[in-house]
Design a protein around this nucleic acid. Structure first.
Ligand SMILES: [Mn+2]
Ligand SMILES: [Mn+2]
Ligand SMILES: [Zn+2]
Ligand SMILES: [Zn+2]
Lengths: 150, 150
DNA sequence: ACTGTAATTGATAATCATTTTCATTTAGTG
DNA sequence: CACTAAATGAAAATGATTATCAATTACAGT
């Protein structure tokens, strides 16, 4: 499913959530960004056009979107997750722990494992996180950095 | 490699870190627990025997252990990670987003994917996180819960 | 065993992220 | 157009993590 503002709004309504202008603004901010955005990032971006929207509403909207699996949560080394839409397709991440650079990758399917785990554990599984962390090429070539050593 | 207090202390020294009694206490607390522990959990446990050790030192010790890949970090739905030793073997997680229950599982090897990604991206990869989230059997049977529905 | 030194610690405060509360507003239904 | 449950914003409370800095200590070298 292609995730646009329109389809997301439809998904909200279908699940009994209201499609408020605040939520639309959050959705648009995420949809228009290539990068993963933290709640504060999102707030900053929409604050320009919509000074009335509070950071709390950003948090609340992200919570709803996460519940509906419409956003993909990224846990970088920082103590604050960031988000993108789960498009154009489900993907996973490669994170540089030095500079924070994030590379998305696709093509690794976990549904088989997911089914096995669901069968064996009795869990109903509805999401997963797969993240590799390391040091990107640029940071490797940067001398003096801790991880550039050895 | 079997991770005991002894081998961990050796790993610390080998990497130029001092093996202080504070760090040993943290290591022991993690090693003696089956469950994943948050920094605060660890602090509570060692505080009984070692009232002098501060929470800050727990954080600092975890940082070192994480750098050396001696602990396995778990990101549950809460806004606070928890830790176990990376033993008896490297493992991954299944987390119930309702009650927080965590099931470890092994037997899924990601080294092939890791090598492919390293080759294609130029990253030097040194760790990864794989976590499935869902609803455990107990919570599914609990009526009234949000996730028990549908 | 003794010394010197850089690493480590603890206390405290500062910062940052997230959640709670509650009165007010509003989307969507009929 | 009116009704009502859901959603919002402001503010404060809470919780997690990090920064600072003076005092302590592990351990390498003698
Ligand atoms: Mn994924
Ligand atoms: Mn793992
Ligand atoms: Zn980098
Ligand atoms: Zn559960």
């Amino acid at each position: 499913m292609k995730l646009t503002e329109k389809t997301i709004v439809a998904a909200l309504r279908r699940n009994g959530y209201k499609a408020t202008p605040q939520r639309r603004a959050v959705i648009r901010a995420i949809a228009n960004s290539i990068d993963h955005l933290t709640p504060a990032d999102i707030y900053d971006r929409i604050h320009l056009d919509h000074p009335g929207i509070g950071l709390v509403t950003v948090y609340r909207t992200l919570e709803v979107l996460a519940t509906l699996n419409l956003v993909c949560e990224l846990h970088t080394g920082t103590n604050c997750p960031s988000y993108t839409l789960s498009i154009p397709q489900h993907h996973h991440h490669l994170v540089c722990s030095d500079c924070g650079k994030v590379v998305d990758f696709t093509g690794h399917n976990l549904t088989e494992l997911e089914e096995r785990l669901a069968r064996e554990s009795g869990f109903r599984i509805n999401n997963h996180i797969l993240e590799f962390t390391g040091c990107c090429r640029t940071c490797q070539e940067m001398p003096g950095t801790a991880s550039a050593a050895r």
